[in-house]
Design a protein around this nucleic acid. Sequence first.
DNA 1: TTTATAATTGCAAATGATTTGCATTTGCAA
DNA 2: TTGCAAATGCAAATCATTTGCAATTATAAA
Lengths: 127, 127
Amino acid sequence: MKLTKTRRDILKLYDEIDYPLNAEEIYNLLNREYDLSTIYRNLNFFEKENILKSIVFSDKITYYYKPKGHSHFIYCIRCKKFESLNLCFEKQYRDYIENNMHFKITDHILYFEGICSECQKEGDKNA
Amino acid sequence: MKLTKTRRDILKLYDEIDYPLNAEEIYNLLNREYDLSTIYRNLNFFEKENILKSIVFSDKITYYYKPKGHSHFIYCIRCKKFESLNLCFEKQYRDYIENNMHFKITDHILYFEGICSECQKEGDKNA
DNA sequence: TTTATAATTGCAAATGATTTGCATTTGCAA
DNA sequence: TTGCAAATGCAAATCATTTGCAATTATAAA
């Protein structure tokens, strides 16, 4: 892999940020210094290389995150922020699926959506 | 809600089919009798009315399914077919998230992707 | 260090799924 | 049966994402 400035900058972002980002957000976080298509190309590249993983939330936009351990998220549909979910029954699912359904699992996606505690307070005020 | 022929036909489809379908598939299953935009409008309508639920798999296309009990799926990335997953730790997740993270959950998505047992056999032959 | 070259970039234009405007049609309540 | 809001078909628009191409750049070999 050719380590270009664009790639270095994207990866640096993900050193600091452990929640999913979409292409537009990355484009802006890097001060629009690189072409959006270049961002897209690199995100695809990183996904192919298993450096990043993608996920689509209810807004139907693709987000990319750096997988670490069990990466599951809760997405606040009001403030659009993520929290990590540190609870995972993946092993139980995997055992069940592989043993009883004879499926060879390549990927799994789990996320929750809702309203975070902060936004619930806001809601009390505004509602 | 106005029960039009289009809507009746779409709902009839979902009486027989319990796995996710995308707009194009529904359009074809109904013999292209209705406009694609009408299909889309109705799928959106059904989702708003909580009659259908949508999910995006790795092909980045929106699929709609009729939720019944715990609707989780395993998607075969080779033959593009679905199987239902009858195992769900939703309650455990929900309790944890609501009690420890004080999130009010509105939705959750769980699915696995991989290669079904049939396609694994095919793979043996072709590979 | 310079050079060769394949990979990467920027820009503009294309794509594909999905949405929308508008004139016409259709369910359904009165 | 009629009136009207809601739903439809069609064409055009939109939005995220991808692609073609000529110019640039990172890296490995000389």
